[in-house]
Design a protein around this nucleic acid. Structure first.
Lengths: 204, 204
DNA sequence: TAGAAAATCAACAGCATGTTCATTTTCGAT
DNA sequence: ATCGAAAATGAACATGCTGTTGATTTTCTA
């Protein structure tokens, strides 16, 4: 029988395949630090990774496919981390609990985040990221505040994108500070607005 | 003598050049609505615009150069609009005044915003957009609140990106609502945080 | 150790790129 | 209205990357 047959964890790949995948991804992330994806060629990537170009095409359709697959892994990770909090029957999570889970998960995927959230990342992905939690969060807000749907959606648009911005800054600083601290800042601003700047407990 | 010699307004171009520029930009924005820039070829764009490929290269180095030039125009517009508010000797603007000016300017450049803020837009540009007002805004905050620089920078990161998110949503809705209303929402959230959802004056 | 899977290498046609040059069209100024 | 300048066109070109194929070699798994 198979030693591992977890449905979500996909196929147990060949050792060689795993190595080349790592080589490719590492070279890719390094290149992406230096220039935007559209300035990178498959040829170039393969030379940097030290693998054959044919091998690349055996795994990915093109660079964007590669990027998409890396992003998909991150999404799945986040989904898994968020699942217990957002389950229908679960207790309503606090904003801080939510952001803590998210930021902790993203810290574990720092290398990918550094790309997708960096200046060369794609907006489409962050949009998908936000979409994941939208409905649930809106439902929670709607239950707690009797605001109009329009107000709610605007608030969510602002606040979720704000978290992304904070994330970006965090990633720029190589995620040096703890995930919990950043999460506290995020929820602090979300809740208190500009009063956050007066909150003495967050001063350093 | 030259009829027009405004230093900022650049060169008074030939009538033909202006026409082709418009044709190119129009075709470009239309294509960008359908697919990301990396799926668009120069050949394709020129056919859509009904111009010769050689003509395109006479004006731009590549598609990204074209995009950059369009973005630069928007930036200059915004800079001009913001100048009086952010001048050293000017009275300190309210958050609402600031956002109003910004959102109004962006509404006037709706077509470009729809691209750069859409899912296929580039993060680099929005980052530059935020950078423009950063120092000044931070200085204003620092004067009003005695928060640490670190707190300030986090707050700014969150809030400016939040505005972008709001902007995005607004652009998705074809900027149907007035710029002032959106600006009020933005500053409302920035100031009041989640209390914004209870503010009765903004209910519809 | 044998068979299967993966990586390599070489070669290929196809295509977009970016450039050049001669030619034609259009503009602006006289 | 005309002339010279500027811009657009069309064609042709070398170039480089692309994506695919088939034969071969290496490496893993059972």
């Amino acid at each position: 029988m198979n030693e591992r047959d977890v449905p979500g964890a996909a196929k147990a790949k060949d050792h060689r395949a795993r190595v080349t995948q790592i080589l490719i991804e590492k070279a890719f992330t390094q290149l992406l630090r230096a220039k935007p994806i559209h300035r990178i060629s498959v040829k170039e990537l393969c030379e940097a990774a030290g693998i054959n170009r044919g091998t690349f095409y055996a795994h990915y359709a093109d660079l964007y496919d590669l990027l998409a697959k890396m992003e998909a892994r991150l999404m799945a990770d986040l989904q898994r981390a968020l699942e217990p909090l957002l389950a229908e029957d679960a207790q309503e999570p606090t904003l801080l609990a939510l952001t803590s889970v998210i930021f902790r998960c993203l810290k574990e995927n720092e290398d990918i985040c550094a790309i997708t959230l960096g200046p060369h990342g794609d907006r489409e992905f962050t949009a998908r990221l936000l979409d994941m939690a939208r409905e649930r969060c809106l439902a929670v807000y709607a239950r707690r505040f009797d605001a109009t749907p329009r107000q709610l959606s605007y608030y969510y648009a602002f606040v979720s994108s704000g978290c992304i911005g904070l994330l970006e800054k965090w990633a720029q600083e190589d995620m040096a500070t703890g995930a919990e601290e950043i999460a506290a800042i995020a929820s602090g601003i979300m809740v208190y607005g500009i009063e956050f700047l007066k909150a003495p407990d967050l001063r350093e």
